[in-house]
Amino acid sequence: MSLTDQTIVDARECAARYPDSRSALLPLLHLVQSAEGTVTSDGIALCADVLGLTTAEVAGVATFYTMYKRHKVGRYHVGVCTNTLCAVLGGDAIWDALSERLGVGHDEVTADGTISLERIECQAACTHAPVMTANWEFLDDMDVPRALEVVEKLRAGEPVMSTRGPRIGTFQEIERSLAGFDDGLANEGGKDVRMLAGLDYAKQHGMSAPAGPAHSPLSVAKTEG
């Protein structure tokens, strides 16, 4: 896939979502990555064109954000959280094992173009440490053998499920979702024991919050007034 007339149509649709079209620049850069795999010069020109900006303005924004890539990433872009909590709970060991197995380091791609690796920061999933991502979908509660297995499967083109989401799509597919286009996957997966830990405990121990009054104070005020 690359930039087509459809990309321009989609870009205009993004721009129309906002009171001021420039606000669509971040989604548009995701859209460019979904078409091109990276933020290319042509992609920058397209954003500038649709939003009435200069290419320098667009490039200045693109370089600020870590999710926009100037070099090709793999079909599956794999992240290992190496922020403190995950690192300590096993993220560093997972990173070392993956990097060694794949023969690539941070921000590098395997020769066959299937996998790229990135040391990522806290993914707001610390309750599920050590955390990995593939094309940003959660791979929670990882250990070294499972991390290696996931990567081997992705490499071989076998299906891999996110632990709290759908089957992991390609980098370009997910970039399209981030640009705000529905992929029909919202109902897949989603919950697990960690998210429900407190609720489960409360239910097992008969704990619950006291009920409130029968009517909202706003509707009471209305009838009284």
């Binding site: 993914q123 707001a124 094309n135 959660f138 996957l185």
Partner: peptide, 20 residues
């Protein structure tokens, strides 16, 4: 008359859910 939910980009499944 306009509200925005700014979600970090690295959580596609959460973005899907909120958008849906």
């Amino acid at each position: 008359n306009h509200a925005f939910i700014y979600i970090r980009g690295e959580v596609p499944h959460v973005i899907r859910r909120v958008a849906a």
